[in-house]
């Protein structure tokens, strides 16, 4: 267990380092671009006076590391923003302020996160069931016709962009068959039943695409395990093929599946941009696309940081889970 604790510790330190580097890269990329940063940050409709104010707010006259220091300070200790007339305090973690909407970025993101989590959590259940199920089935039926059919379907799933699947689903289910209304987000706390019905299609389209990856990974790692010597041992001791698959081959695949799930979950929280945009779900992704289109720089930077945080976290969790599931990793 000692080895595992050390591993977790190393991994957490690694994640912190990565996050720090990520924040530097993002800061440099966005705030050291050529052109008038204050103008871009403030947005296209700002008056020269406002632009001047923003330039001060961002400490544009200071050297780069001081500016970055201010940025970090805001993140950990909070920061004050003057909106011309009044001064507003932005409590830590302060990701800045949108000059176009006069809203704090942290608030904007916090309002969107529940939607993204609703989408991803539901989809996760489906992609796990569907993906792992398909993977197990095709590993079990390996070499037969049914496996080739499954492989072809999975490949098609990998090949189809999520917005194509979503579009087709929406048109067929909501448009032609009228089985469901066109999705509209309902808060879980308001009406859990409507919440689920409205999210069903987004869940399905996100899960269909992701489950293809899970199916491939499950199948590949199960086949890899089945080719290992210890499988031969259990066959030579009269263990039935079904037990070999269910107990030994599947166990060999769990570590990878758990890790892939953590990673997919992490990147989907912010990365389900396409699904959210397509179904008009007011999640993090859709907000980001909107911010990009209207060039609301503070929101973009804040969003990227938060999403990056989730992804790095998910990666660390994935590695730890992998190590827990396959203790040999720690020893290596």
């Amino acid at each position: 267990m000692n080895g595992l604790t050390g591993f977790v510790l190393r991994r957490v330190i690694g994640a912190v380092v990565t996050l720090f580097a990520l924040s530097v890269i993002i800061y440099v990329v966005f705030y050291v671009t050529p052109g008038n940063v204050a103008q871009i940050t403030c947005g296209p409709r700002c008056s020269p006076a406002q632009v001047h104010q923003v330039a001060q707010q961002l400490h544009l006259d200071d050297p780069l590391y001081v500016r970055y220091g201010h940025f970090l300070q805001g993140l950990f200790a909070g920061q004050d923003f003057s909106t011309g007339t009044s001064v507003e305090h932005c409590a830590a973690p302060c990701l800045g302020q949108s000059y176009q909407t006069d809203q704090q970025v942290t608030d904007i993101i916090l309002a969107k996160l529940p939607v993204s989590f609703s989408l991803v959590l539901g989809a996760m259940v489906i992609w796990l069931l569907l993906g792992v199920g398909t993977g197990v089935l095709s590993a079990w039926r390996r070499g037969r016709f049914s496996e080739r059919v499954l492989t072809a379907i999975t490949l098609a799933g990998v090949a189809t962009p999520v917005f194509v699947i979503g579009l087709v689903l929406m048109i067929v289910v909501c448009g032609e068959l009228q089985l469901l209304p066109f999705p509209q987000y309902v808060n879980f706390t308001d009406d859990p039943e409507q919440w689920a019905w409205n999210l069903l299609l987004p869940w399905l389209s996100l899960a269909l695409v992701e489950s293809a990856n899970f199916a491939r990974l499950t199948r590949a790692s199960m086949l890899e395990t089945l080719a290992e010597d210890h499988i031969r041992t259990f066959r030579a001791y009269g263990v039935s093929e079904r037990a070999v698959i269910a107990r030994h081959a599947l166990r060999g695949a769990t570590a990878s599946v758990i890790a892939l799930n953590a990673v997919t979950f992490g990147s989907a929280v912010g990365g389900a941009v396409l699904t959210e945009t397509l179904f008009g779900l007011p999640g993090v992704g859709q907000e980001l696309v909107h911010a990009v289109k209207v060039v609301d720089l503070p929101v973009v930077v804040g969003m990227v940081l938060v999403i990056g945080f989730f992804v790095v976290l998910a990666n660390a969790v994935a590695d730890v889970l992998y190590a827990v599931a396959d203790r040999r990793v720690v020893l290596a």
Binding site: A21, V273, G285, L288, V300, V311, V312, N315
Partner: peptide
Amino acid sequence: SRITDIFVAMPLMIMALALLAV
């Protein structure tokens, strides 16, 4: 390897979106 890891961790769609904005 650290640099590579950071880029491995970044979600494509998000970074692409952000970059295309600036």
